[in-house]
Design a protein around this nucleic acid. Sequence first.
DNA 1: GTATACTGCTTAACAATGTTAACTAAGAGA
DNA 2: TCTCTTAGTTAACATTGTTAAGCAGTATAC
Lengths: 227, 227
Amino acid sequence: METADSETESVHNASHERRAREKEALRESILRAAGEVFLERGYDGLSMRQVAERIGYTATTIYLHFKNKDDLLFALLNDGYAELGRRLAAAAEAERDPMQRLAAIGRAYVAFGLEHPSLYQVMFMRRADFLAARFKESQDDHLNPFNVLARAVADALQAGVLKPGDVMSYAMAMWAVVHGLVSLALITPEVEAGLTERMTQVAMSATLSGFQAAPVVPARKRSRHGG
Amino acid sequence: METADSETESVHNASHERRAREKEALRESILRAAGEVFLERGYDGLSMRQVAERIGYTATTIYLHFKNKDDLLFALLNDGYAELGRRLAAAAEAERDPMQRLAAIGRAYVAFGLEHPSLYQVMFMRRADFLAARFKESQDDHLNPFNVLARAVADALQAGVLKPGDVMSYAMAMWAVVHGLVSLALITPEVEAGLTERMTQVAMSATLSGFQAAPVVPARKRSRHGG
DNA sequence: GTATACTGCTTAACAATGTTAACTAAGAGA
DNA sequence: TCTCTTAGTTAACATTGTTAAGCAGTATAC
C-alpha cells in the first residue's frame, strides 16, 4: 500500500512538475515575444494579438499567464530596472573616490538611457506608474537603482566632499539631472549626438562641482571690470 | 445693374462672413471642450466622441474643423507652448543680472511644469513629436521658450559670468536640468512637495554655480586630512 | 417663387484595441 | 473505461480613430 501510494504520488509530482515547467516555458516565450514586438513596433505597437500571433497562440492565451496587458508590460520592464541597477552598481564599484563615483553613476545612467531609448521612455516617461510599484517592491534591494545612487551620496556626504545637506535632496537632485539629460535627448532626436554629449558634459560637471562649491549665485562682482 | 450687382455681392460677403464666424466659433468651442475633457480625464481619456458629446455634436463633426485627433491635440498644446514662452520671457525681463536671470527662467520653467502637470506631460513627455514641429514652426519667434533661454545664456556668456563655452551646450544643459526636475517630480507623485522643493533648490543652485565655478571634479586633495 | 447646388452634420460602417465568457479537446487519475 | 481538470480556442463586447455615404436645410440662380 505504502509503495503504491508513494509511487502514484511521485507520478503526480512528476507530471505536475512537467506541467509547471511547460507553463513557465510558455510564460518566458510570451515575454520574449513581447520584448521583440516592443522593440520593433514600439510601445504603442505592442498589442496582445501581435505578441500571441508571433508565437502561434491566440491573444487570450496570454491571459492564462499574465493578469492583463499591464502585468505583461510590468514583467518586461522589471528586466530593465534590474539591468539599470546592475549597471549603476558596477559603475559605483569601479570608482573609489566619492566624487568620481557619483560622476561614474551619472554617466552610467545616461549611457543606459541612450542605449535603450524605447525601454527608457516606457520605464521613466510613459508608464511612470510602474516606477512607484517597482521601487516600492524592491525598497530594500541594494541593487535598486535609486538605492545605489543614495548610497553613493551618503558616502560622499560622510566623506565631507559635499556641502552639508540631506541625502534625499542630493540623490533626487542628481537623479533629476541625469534623467533630464536622457529624456531631453530622447525627445529631441533631431539634435545631433555631438551636442547631446556636450550638453551632458556641461550639465554633469556643473552639477557635481556645484555640489561641492560655493553658495548659489554668489553674485561676486569684479570691481576691476566695473560691473 | 451695378447697384444690383454690388448688392448681391455684399449679401454674399455678409453670409460668407457669418458662416466663417460660426465655423470659427465652433472650432473654438471644440477646442475648449477638448481642453476640459483633457483636464478631467487626462490624455488617455481624451476621445473624439467624448469631446463632441460635450458640446452636443457627433464625433465626425470634429473632422470638419480638424484634420484628425493629432491636429486637435496640437492646437491644444500650442496654447501651452505659447504660455510657457510668455512666462519665461516675463521672468527673464524681471531680472537684470545675467546669472539671476538664468535662475529666474529656471524657476519659472519649473513652476509652469508643476502648475500644469498633465499639460506638461503631454507637451514634453508623451507627445514630444509635437515639440519638434512646434519649435521648428516658431524658430525665429522671440517668445519661443527655448529662444528665451538661449538669449539669456548668450547674454550671460557675453557678460563673462559663465565659463567659456557655446550657447547651445549651456542652453541645452540648463533645459535638461529644469526638465529633469519637472518630469521627475511629475513621475513620482508620492514624493512629498517639500522634498521636491529641496531637490529643485539643490539642483538649480548647484548647476548655476557650476556654470561659473572651477573645473569639474577637480579632485583637489586636502593633505591635512590625509586622504 | 421654384429649382439647384452647396454645406454642415449625422448615421453607418470598418478595422483594431483590451478583455471576458463560453466552449472544446486532450490528457491525468481512479 | 469513465470522469475531471486544464490549456487553449472561438465568439463576443465595448471602445477607439477614421472614412464614406446620406440627409436636411440654406443660399444662390433663374
